[in-house]
């Protein structure tokens, strides 16, 4: 077995609030193997998004109190700011939650992909960059004309595909997906998730998917971790979690999906 891509040990994240410090993530530990899809599920405020923000070092008015985070063997929390910026999207990329509003409204799609290359010191010969970007869009099922569009000219599903294309621009080893489909309607959700799965397989990257929809999650990931009030209360393969949930909150999550529940129980 190869070394894990991501290792998190005893992560604690605290926010400042007027009523004193608020413990948003408590003693969370898990790891992702190379090429693995791991899902973190939980209600809003359970600490799953905070975990991702802490990984990306994008917490506002919160900080990592203790814990260890290693990405490809490197200590993430100790990395200096300049090195960390270079590492974003190159080793660990993000597919954001708000697909509708995550693209800069006044820049063309081409410019918003190209600046990832520019700011990571990748120089191209004439024409090569355009070719690379066309190729990138093709992999998420978008025509090359999209490069010349502004975000408002795209549908929600197309915008999220653009975000997925961006996330693989630098061929990272880990893709963090923060409820990437929550703003989309059901049909588009499935297509977008399928696209994410396809590019992930092609790339051999690991995916950390966050969501509150147990059913959608179960179709996509290999393993699931359930978060509740900041703690990781249960973790295991999809089959194991559904067959034999240990924590009351996990049972509640599964019971709230009637159809899904029945088919699994019968199996």
């Amino acid at each position: 077995m190869t070394a894990p891509v991501l290792e998190i040990e005893g992560l604690n994240v605290v926010y400042d609030t007027p009523g004193g410090p608020f413990h948003a993530v408590r003693d969370v530990s898990f790891s992702l193997a190379s090429g693995e899809r791991f899902g973190l599920v939980g209600e809003s405020g359970s600490g799953k998004s905070t975990t991702i923000l802490a990984l990306m070092r994008m917490l506002r008015s919160g900080w990592v109190e203790s814990g260890k985070v290693r990405l490809n063997g490197r200590d993430l929390l100790a990395a200096p700011a300049s090195a960390f910026r270079q590492l974003r999207f190159a080793e660990m990329s993000l597919v954001p939650q708000g697909a509708m509003s995550s693209l800069n409204p006044v820049l063309r799609i081409a410019d918003q992909i190209a600046d990832i290359y520019d700011d990571h010191g990748i120089r191209w010969r004439r024409g090569e960059q355009i070719e690379a970007m066309r190729n990138l869009l093709a992999r998420v099922g978008l025509p090359p004309t999209v490069l010349g569009f502004y975000p408002h000219q795209l549908s929600g599903g197309m915008k999220q595909r653009v975000c997925i294309a961006m996330s693989i621009a630098l061929r990272p080893t880990l893709i963090l997906a923060d409820e990437p489909t929550s703003a989309l309607d059901v049909m588009v959700q499935k297509q977008v998730l399928a696209t994410l799965g396809r590019v992930q397989r092609d790339l051999g990257a690991s995916v950390l998917l966050i969501g509150h929809d147990m059913a959608l999650m179960a179709h996509f990931v290999d393993r699931i971790g359930v978060m509740y009030q900041g703690s990781l209360v249960e973790m295991g393969s999809v089959r194991k979690i559904f067959a034999d949930p240990q924590h009351a909150y996990t049972r509640m999550l599964i019971d709230s999906l009637p159809s899904f529940n029945r088919t699994r129980r019968r199996a």
């Binding site: 926010y15 400042d16 609030t17 007027p18 506002r60 008015s61 919160g62």
Partner: peptide, 8 residues
């Protein structure tokens, strides 16, 4: 944290 900013 939004609350905090507000109070402040």
């Amino acid at each position: 944290m939004a609350i905090f900013a507000g109070r402040h």
